[in-house]
Simulated assay, not measured.
Amino acid sequence: MPLTFTLDPAITPALRDDILDLWTDVSNAGGSVGHVPPVTRDEIRPGLVRHLVQMAEGRTRLLVGLDETGHVAATAFLTHNSHRLMTHWIWLYTVMVHPRYQGRGYGRDLMAAAADAARGLEGVEAIRLTCRGGHGLERFYASCGYKEVGRVPDAIRVAPGDDRDEVVMLLPLG
């Protein structure tokens, strides 16, 4: 069953908790969303609070994908660039699909919904995102139309002796 995507849903306690659970589950499954397993909800919470504050300030938009039961199965945060010379593109952060739904095409659906949402934003011509090297994520994003435009070797240290590249990807919307 396909996910139902919504941009800028009302932030209820249930939605907030669903996102927190999703982020924790994705992180603990090895997902590259800012943490290294094992993590707890309490360790994830400050990152979610930062996104929620940016949403309240009007800098960030939330895209959620709900499963057939109405629970959050996927998310992405679209963040306006604050540099006045770079307002023609946005950042895509914290792109997640719950591990139980991976392999069903929901990641590709999420990326298409994010591109559609970005096309609806005035003056936005492209989406940038970064991903952690070593997981093949750049191949997934490339299959969604993104191009690798930069790479910082060993920028991400997931553990002592385990450094990964930060890969910068771009999707022109034109």
Rank of each mutant, 00 (worst) to 15 (best):
A14C: 00
L15W: 03
D17H: 05
I19A: 03
L20W: 11
L20N: 15
L22Q: 13
T24E: 15
D25H: 07
V26I: 11
S32M: 12
S32Q: 12
H35C: 13
H35L: 11
P38N: 14
T40M: 10
D42K: 12
D42F: 07
D42N: 14
E43I: 08
I44G: 13
R45E: 12
R45L: 10
P46G: 13
P46T: 05
R50E: 15
H51C: 06
H51G: 06
V53C: 00
Q54C: 09
Q54T: 06
M55I: 10
M55F: 06
E57H: 06
G58C: 02
G58L: 02
G58M: 00
R59N: 09
T60A: 14
L62T: 02
L62F: 03
V64N: 10
D67A: 12
E68W: 11
T69G: 15
H71Y: 04
H71V: 03
A73P: 03
A73N: 03
F77Y: 05
L78C: 07
L78T: 01
T79L: 10
H80T: 02
M86F: 09
T87F: 04
T87Q: 12
H88S: 10
W89I: 09
W89Q: 14
W91S: 14
W91Y: 07
Y93L: 12
Y93T: 12
T94M: 08
T94Y: 01
V97A: 09
H98P: 06
P99T: 03
P99K: 03
R100T: 10
Y101T: 00
G103D: 02
Y106A: 09
G107Q: 01
R108L: 10
R108I: 04
R108E: 12
A112M: 10
A112R: 13
A112Y: 04
D116K: 14
A118T: 02
A118I: 00
R119Y: 08
G120R: 11
E122G: 05
E125T: 09
E125K: 14
A126Y: 07
I127L: 15
I127S: 12
I127C: 13
I127G: 10
C131N: 07
G133V: 01
H135W: 03
H135Y: 05
G136W: 03
E138A: 05
R139N: 06
Y141I: 05
Y141V: 02
S143L: 06
S143C: 06
C144V: 02
C144F: 01
C144L: 05
Y146D: 07
E148G: 09
E148A: 15
E148R: 12
V149W: 09
V149F: 08
G150Q: 10
G150E: 11
